[in-house]
Amino acid sequence: MIKFRKNILEFANPNNFLSIANKIIPFFLILTIIILSLGLVWGLFFTPEDYRQGSSVKIIFIHVPTAFLAINIYFMMLLASIIWLIRRHHVSLIAAKSAALIGLIMTLSAILTGAIWGKPIWGTYWAWDPRLTSFAILLMFYLGYLSIWQTMKFSDKIGDLSSWLCIVGSIFALLSRYAVFFWDQGLHQGPSLSLDKEENIDNVFYFPLIICIIGFVLLFLTLLLIRIKTEIQKRKINILLNARDG
């Protein structure tokens, strides 16, 4: 336990982070490729058709992982922002910044696949169903967070501002989510995946889905590590340039 704590704190130092990241990035990259392709190929070619939804059930293998990531990346950004505000660890701030674009893309793909799946099954691409509305809300807050980084130059002040924006955004995103769910539960079925429930979806779909989720999470982690590494190097270059030019 003590060793673990020490390691976490070491991780917060950008140089240590870089040396650790350099070691584990190739490993993560290979693992991502293997697991993601295994999950997607299994899901696409070796699963039977659902008796009600036909082969359109195969969309679940990207819809669920991307939706899962879209929500959890925002949560991760919130945690990283809070850590930055309290402990002033630069890696934490950079992690929040780097995760935002991936989260936006995951939200977009979740909405896209959901819409494509919804047309044959629900008869409409888009309805103002609570769950869809909460994804639209999530999309807006991702855009807000990204725009603060796009318009202003990287500095600790902007880091503070963006962290506060992330915190305020998550408060209001949660409030809006409950406001939307206040009147009805919408078209979606209840959660189909949970660890403690007896009735999960059928095992035929369950295992490839779990593999796909792990694969997408690994994809996110790999991309995040590379992006953080790039961002740290960018800041290094800036510092070096400033030092040279005076």
Partner: peptide, 14 residues
Amino acid sequence: GKYTFEVLISYAGT
């Protein structure tokens, strides 16, 4: 089968 287009377009889009 019936939903080839949907499946392929969603995989390609993502």
